[in-house]
Design a protein around this nucleic acid. Structure first.
Lengths: 143, 143
DNA sequence: CTGTGTGCAAACTCTTTGCATAAGT
DNA sequence: ACTTATGCAAAGAGTTTGCACACAG
């Protein structure tokens, strides 16, 4: 199924962690491997913990939370807040739009370049725009 | 300041409720009055409950939650999800962009028309775009 | 009257935290 | 060795829910 070993990895989890100045503990490497596997992903702490369990990574839920926060704070991940009471993490950390399927609560990247701004607001005095979150909410077409 | 009167006087909470087919109970009228006062607003259940207490409206927190949900489901309000674990309600229920001040967690409407899309993604097959949430995250300018 | 809305408190979900143990440098 | 990370379980925040009573139509 999903072989996590270094065959196709664009970059090893060790490098990924080292670059961010994070200690490459077993758990972090395991989580990083899971995160890096299969391209860009959107997942919750619970989801990742579930995957870690399946992969016999031996990582506690608390550590998953800690690690996701750590990864986010060094710019490796990005938080996505769409549903109340649930935080998604995106392995793509740049500013890009998302589809949100209201029916099943899943998140997906919108096609690259599909959202373009004709204009953006000026930031108020002394402020600057840190990011522009765009969520395209989708629902099943009424027919 | 903020000119609330578009053409007519701010409509009464009773009318507002009736139009939506909601029973005008004392609590709902009180909450609607608070919501309609002072133009468009962004608030949380806790905030509104606090205001209700100050106004001696005699409304429980549970009822505030129920009422906000009820108002939202009939299109009177709109949910805004920006911070994990906290839901904001917007008295403006149309699709419009927001400023989010990361420093203090406050929300404001971005100037009308300040955000315009040059392009929007096509909805996947069988789907349609229900809304496009745009949040411009602001932070204090680095100097 | 009849049914819907309200209030209280307990329950729930997701997330965070304290502290002892284990692992990295 | 010394420091930082991990794991467990308990605490915390925000929100939801069950049930008895009150009120609107």
């Amino acid at each position: 199924m999903n072989d996590v070993s270094s065959t196709a990895a664009p970059e090893s989890s060790a490098v990924w962690l080292a670059r961010a100045g994070l200690r490459p503990t077993r758990q972090r490497r395991a989580l990083a491997d899971l995160l890096l596997a299969g391209g860009h992903r959107h997942l919750t702490a619970e989801t990742l913990h579930g995957e870690a369990l399946e992969a016999d990574a031996g990582v506690s839920l608390a550590t998953v939370y800690n690690t996701l926060k750590a990864f986010t704070s060094v710019g490796l991940l990005r938080e996505i807040v769409i549903e109340p009471g649930r935080v998604y993490y995106d392995t793509r950390s740049d500013d890009h739009p998302h589809f949100y399927h209201e029916d099943d609560g899943t998140i997906a990247d919108a096609p690259v370049g599909s959202v373009a701004f004709a204009s953006l607001p000026d930031a108020p005095d002394g402020m600057e725009i840190a990011a522009v979150d765009v969520v395209v909410r989708l629902r099943r077409q009424a027919r």
